[in-house]
């Protein structure tokens, strides 16, 4: 009996987290007369809301922009970031100590402090309304470098020595010896970086004004601020939000264990 009550309470809690998403999905298929109803099944399903939002703002283009920006940043953080992490972990060179210290120190600086100076830098570089503005400030990530460096420090010395005896260069050692061993930290860094870039909204709002260059969260924000809040506007806005939510939910459904573990292990949210 106590056990049954426990499951009912837990079920209600889960409903509080899942029902809003289901209701949102259902609402996007409802006609204006039905919007606001609690039902999850539209009486007269319609695609009108999707047609409206697709016609009013370039969401297809925004989807491509977001994919391009998030993928470029993730690849860069993984490839160039692990090269830097490898050097910091396994190679002796002048300045390594300082670089390690600065990497840790940078993590302690709140993002709000550097936001405006970085913005003025982007303006002075003439990068407003460009992919460079969206990508360049994120091509490295101090947290990612620390995670990878920590892992690379644990790779046995003997593996490196024998690879060197075989005449391998440092880059080949990194990508053919270290990478296969580092799948778990690479996946963690990859997921966190992609999620962070995919969800970012304040930075694009500052540096991009051209609708054709906007990322999904940004275009969604701009789109939802236009127009009123009545039932006629609500459903197209939710339909626009679906474009942002559905790919993430799909990835999350298959990879949820990795999502949860990578975020929890590092103490960062996307």
């Amino acid at each position: 009996m106590r056990r049954a009550v426990f499951y009912v309470v837990l079920g209600l809690a889960a409903v509080a987290f899942l029902y809003p998403f289901l209701w949102m999905a259902a609402t996007t298929f409802k006609s204006p007369a039905e919007v606001g109803g609690l039902s999850l099944i539209p009486d007269q399903p319609t695609l009108e809301n999707y047609r409206l939002m697709w016609a009013r703002a370039p969401f297809g283009r925004a989807l491509i922009n977001s994919l391009f920006v998030a993928t470029t940043i993730t690849v860069s953080v993984l490839v160039f970031g692990s090269a830097a992490a490898y050097a910091l972990a396994r190679l002796r060179f002048p300045g390594r100590g300082i670089l390690n210290t600065v990497t840790v120190a940078v993590l302690l600086v709140p993002a709000q402090l550097t936001l405006i100076p970085t913005y003025t830098l982007i303006v002075e570089l003439g990068w407003i309304d460009s992919y460079a503005a969206l990508i360049a400030p994120y091509v490295f990530n101090a947290m990612a470098i620390l995670i990878l460096r920590q892992f690379f420090l644990q790779v046995p010395r003997s593996l490196m020595d024998s690879a060197r005896l075989d005449g391998m260069g440092e880059l080949r050692i990194l990508f053919t010896v270290f990478w296969p061993l580092a799948k778990a930290p690479l996946a963690t860094v990859g997921i966190l970086t992609f999620m962070g870039a995919w969800n970012e909204v304040l930075w694009p709002l500052l540096v991009v004004r051209d609708e054709q260059l906007m990322t999904l969260p940004q275009l969604l924000t701009v789109f939802s601020l236009g127009g009123g809040a009545g039932p006629r506007q609500l459903a197209p806005k939710l339909a626009a939000a679906m474009v942002l939510v559905v790919p993430v939910v799909a990835a999350y459904t298959f990879l949820q264990r990795y999502f949860i573990e990578s975020m929890a292990s590092t103490g960062i949210k996307g």
Binding site: P20, V245, Y252, K269
Partner: peptide, 20 residues
């Protein structure tokens, strides 16, 4: 996974959802 779902959703989308 149910409790964690909103964590992975973009703040912009969650905000639009809550405006509804």
């Amino acid at each position: 996974a149910a409790f964690f779902l909103p964590v992975v959703i973009s703040g912009a989308a969650v905000t639009i959802l809550w405006s509804a």
